[in-house]
């Protein structure tokens, strides 16, 4: 019951999507079902993300309640969640500070705090990428050299001053990088990875539909 019913549900909901692909969405009911079921999945998926937020709240709340080490920071996380989330779900008719429009608490916090920290976090990675490049250079093998040479060429090629520098060697060098490195070698590897990953994803999907893959159910 606890595993058989979910497997049947997974099989049926998957088969509907596969079969409906072969029917015209404008003329057949089965074709129309596809777009309707996709909306259903979006709704259920939305609840899944909300569950994630509830889970974060529970974990932090427990740490605060038991006053574990660093509980003050957990309290900060909790306050941040509520300060951001609650005004966003309250109706705008109550106050212009509610909702998610420009001028709301939600919008102000996102623009002036959340996105600022997001940009800074990614900016911070520039320093760690530099140290990673240094370590790769110290590896002193053919693969690391190829990786770094390509990275340097691409970085030079993408900025006007670097492109001018490349033209000192040959006027065709920037065009050569574009054609053979980016659209040649790089694209072929991307294509190989895409084909491999897509085959893997398709076979994994088949395993889920047939009930062979059940790890998503967890234990119990």
């Amino acid at each position: 019951m606890r595993t058989t019913v979910p497997v049947i549900i997974a099989f049926l909901s998957g088969i509907v999507m596969i079969v409906s692909f072969f029917f015209n969405p404008d003329r057949t009911i089965l074709g129309q079902i596809e777009s309707e079921v996709l909306v259903w999945v979006t709704i259920v998926g939305g609840f899944t993300l909300l569950l994630g937020v509830v889970s974060i709240t529970r974990v932090n709340f427990r740490s605060v309640r038991l006053q574990k080490e660093g509980w003050f920071f957990n309290l900060l996380t909790l306050i941040s969640i509520f300060v951001m989330a609650i005004p966003s779900i309250l109706p705008v008719s109550w106050s212009p500070l509610f909702g998610d429009r420009e001028g709301s608490i939600y919008d102000w916090l996102f623009t002036n705090v959340d996105s600022i920290m997001m940009q800074t976090m990614f900016g911070l990675l520039a320093f760690y990428i530099a140290s990673a490049a240094y370590r790769a250079f110290r590896a002193r093998n053919a693969e690391a050299t190829i990786l770094l040479l390509t990275a340097v060429l691409v970085m030079l090629w993408r900025v006007p001053m670097g492109e001018a520098f490349l033209r000192l060697f040959s006027d065709d060098l920037p065009q050569w990088i574009n054609s053979y490195v980016m659209n040649g070698a790089n694209m072929s590897v991307q294509r190989g990875i895409i084909i491999g990953a897509a085959l893997g994803a398709a076979s994994m999907s088949l395993r889920i539909l047939l009930g062979i893959e059940r790890t998503y159910m967890g234990k119990g």
Partner: peptide, 25 residues
Amino acid sequence: SRLALAFVMGNTAGVFIISQLHGLI
């Protein structure tokens, strides 16, 4: 909760088989 999860997983798997084969490979 597995019932809901199975619905999402099955549906995503169904969409993926078609989209990966038809749209990517």
